[in-house]
Design a protein around this nucleic acid. Structure first.
Lengths: 209, 209
DNA sequence: GCAGGCTGGTGACCACAGTCACCAATCTAC
DNA sequence: GTAGATTGGTGACTGTGGTCACCAGCCTGC
């Protein structure tokens, strides 16, 4: 399927015409429904996804326990795919679409070339590494300092900002999974937060006050 | 002080003559004693260090508690400095020389240029981002899964590999600080590891069996 | 209607790490 | 020498989060 260059340009305005042309002739665009697996641990990477629309969740798993690392939003990319693609090593993380998404798939064998030739794409990846590095640092700090209530509250704040919703329709079970803890713990802590007046649990979902 | 280009080349063989010449005319080399602060949280970065010899410790601090993130060894660099330098944002981490070290200091205002012009230096930073990303992923997994004994044992293994010593002369207090825990906990866990036959505590230090 | 899922609310219990308060053995300074 | 600091070893206690068991309120399908 030949790609429409102007379609890509809508999302990636920083890219030069030359780069866009290269991408249009080698990449594909793919619509992916929510809940689809993009990348799993141990997998080798042939195409590098850039999220044009939607949301992709990245997480790690360790002996049945998982932990949300970060979300990939619009015009962002997955540095694990990038680094795994470049160095031809397997992925260490999982990625799943959280919403219906539109992905631009770049073939990794072209990437090495493009990175050298087009500063814009190079900058994109430096920015992404940067962003993820600091996000992971925050994750480490919050894990180290423990304090479930802080972690949960921050998690809800982030989630609310990301989705642009004031009332989050989230199952306790899902929160527990993403935070790498147990459902009962979420229930307990959420009630404590409610008593402290930081959140309200309504039938429709959780409201941050 | 004019730099000796061949001196730098000894360490960074992948760099082209042209890049080495650029570096020689703009960078400095600095000998730093053990225990010197290279970078602290909140600091803005003017020079990017590349470690030629020695060892630099990178860690985060959170309310009096610190946690070792990783070590920067020979021909490696500090991506926090790199990213903070490029985007002119403050550092999120601390860095201290662990041994007497020889550092190559690159001015960050040249960096942006060099990265675009010289693929070798670009590759170096991608490699470093990669490496640190996976190291931080391991840190997150070990924090998430808890298990102090595993963490401590892995810490000792890493340390032993890094220093190339079979017997580690380390204070319990220092181990505790680097792992973000308390001294008594280290003493306790270390004794358990000794009972399990995984380590031996000799007067000279800790031996991994 | 009712069975069988989910969901969340709860109490009891446990394990682990963090904290406190000591103490004994070394080492260091003067 | 002695005083003081550093190091490590220990017992007791605590708080937090993880686990277990169970129950009530639902929705959904048939």
């Amino acid at each position: 399927m030949p790609l429409d260059q102007s379609e890509i340009k809508k999302y990636l305005q920083d890219f030069s015409e030359e780069l866009l042309a290269e991408i249009a002739s080698h990449a594909q665009i793919k619509e992916v429904p929510a809940g689809a697996e993009i990348l799993r641990e141990g997998q080798y990477v042939k195409v590098l996804p850039i999220v044009l629309e939607g949301l992709v969740k990245v997480f790690t798993r360790y002996e049945e326990k998982e932990l949300l690392l970060y979300y990939i939003g619009s015009t962002q990319s997955c540095i694990m795919s990038f680094s795994a693609g470049l160095s031809n090593s397997p992925s260490r993380i999982f990625a799943i679409t959280e919403e219906d998404s539109l992905l631009l798939l770049l073939p990794t064998d072209k990437l090495n070339n493009w990175v050298k030739k087009f500063p814009a794409i190079n900058d994109l990846f430096y920015q992404q590494y940067n962003l993820r590095y600091t996000e992971m640092l925050d994750t480490i700090n919050s894990l180290l300092f423990g304090r479930m209530d802080h972690r949960l509250y921050n998690y809800l704040l982030e989630k609310s900002k990301l989705k642009g919703e004031k009332i989050l329709s989230l199952r306790h079970k899902k929160i527990a999974a993403e935070m790498g803890t147990a459902r009962e713990v979420v229930t307990r802590v959420l009630k404590r937060l409610e008593q402290e007046g930081k959140v309200r649990q309504l039938p429709e979902g959780i409201e941050i006050t």
